[in-house]
Design a protein around this nucleic acid. Structure first.
Lengths: 139, 139
DNA sequence: ATGTATGCAAAACATTTGCACCTGG
DNA sequence: CCAGGTGCAAATGTTTTGCATACAT
């Protein structure tokens, strides 16, 4: 019962929040923009305003339920937080998103921050390229 | 004579382009947004439209004269290209930008792309944190 | 009941574009 | 002269916000 998840993070259990969480958990796409979620809601017959979708996604992010990735400046997509930190590979042809985690990189980043006198709070790493499917389809 | 730089990359030498290149080369800040450049132009008494600033910066980027960094989604800043690839550290307090280059990370990124079947075209890495100045000023 | 949440429409931003006019080579 | 560049205003796309109404507890 996912309404528990909402209560647990201190969010009042409302219909929009339940529906949005449901979509995030059950959609076949792991990464969705606010617009994607909004359209999915409409398809399910839920009349929820786009502004509410944005507000709820931001709250979910604040609560740690989801994380926000910012793609190529000015376009955000969200993914369910799975507790495991990871970075992303983005296909520049089909926009497919793959994930990876590399301890060597993570550690080097920490070392660089120290070297430069920064107290690291976060980091973001995106590798852009052409995924195998797009390479073979010559697309 | 920087008008040569413009001709060299195939851009017609016009007043806005000369002035904008001049600002990029002589400003004390290495990283500037379109708005920053626009304001700097006004301060120098040059009446150049913001739209032109955007157009020219985009052309300069295409010509390889400058590179574009995208900060926290929906805000671009430009820096003069120095030929050497590097990544960035951003201070979340004062927005200071520091640069670094790490061969270990560069190499791991290439390896990961191969591992995941991606033909890497580019990558972007930002380390966010609090710079030493902001740490000491307790700001 | 009562403090939040929502919906809608309008605002905010950063950036881009259409189009008539101007300019560099 | 003429292709390309510029200025202005209007359009864009995404996200945020103000405010009156509706809802969860």
């Amino acid at each position: 019962m996912e309404s528990q998840d909402l209560r647990k993070v201190g969010l009042k259990v409302t219909l929009p929040r339940i529906k949005i969480l449901d979509i995030l958990e059950n959609s076949e796409q792991r990464h969705m923009s606010a617009e994607d979620v909004y359209k999915a809601l409409l398809e399910m017959g839920n009349e929820i305003g786009l502004a509410t979708v944005y507000r709820v996604l931001t709250q979910f992010e604040g609560a740690g339920l989801i994380s926000r990735l910012t793609i190529d400046g000015g376009h955000a997509v969200f993914e369910l937080a799975d507790g495991n930190h990871h970075d992303h590979l983005l296909c520049v042809r089909c926009n497919r998103i793959a994930e990876f985690m590399d301890d060597v990189i993570e550690q080097r980043q920490r070392a660089i921050a120290v070297e430069k006198g920064f107290k690291m709070t976060d980091h973001s790493l995106y590798i852009y390229g052409i995924c195998s499917e797009c390479q073979s389809s010559g697309e």
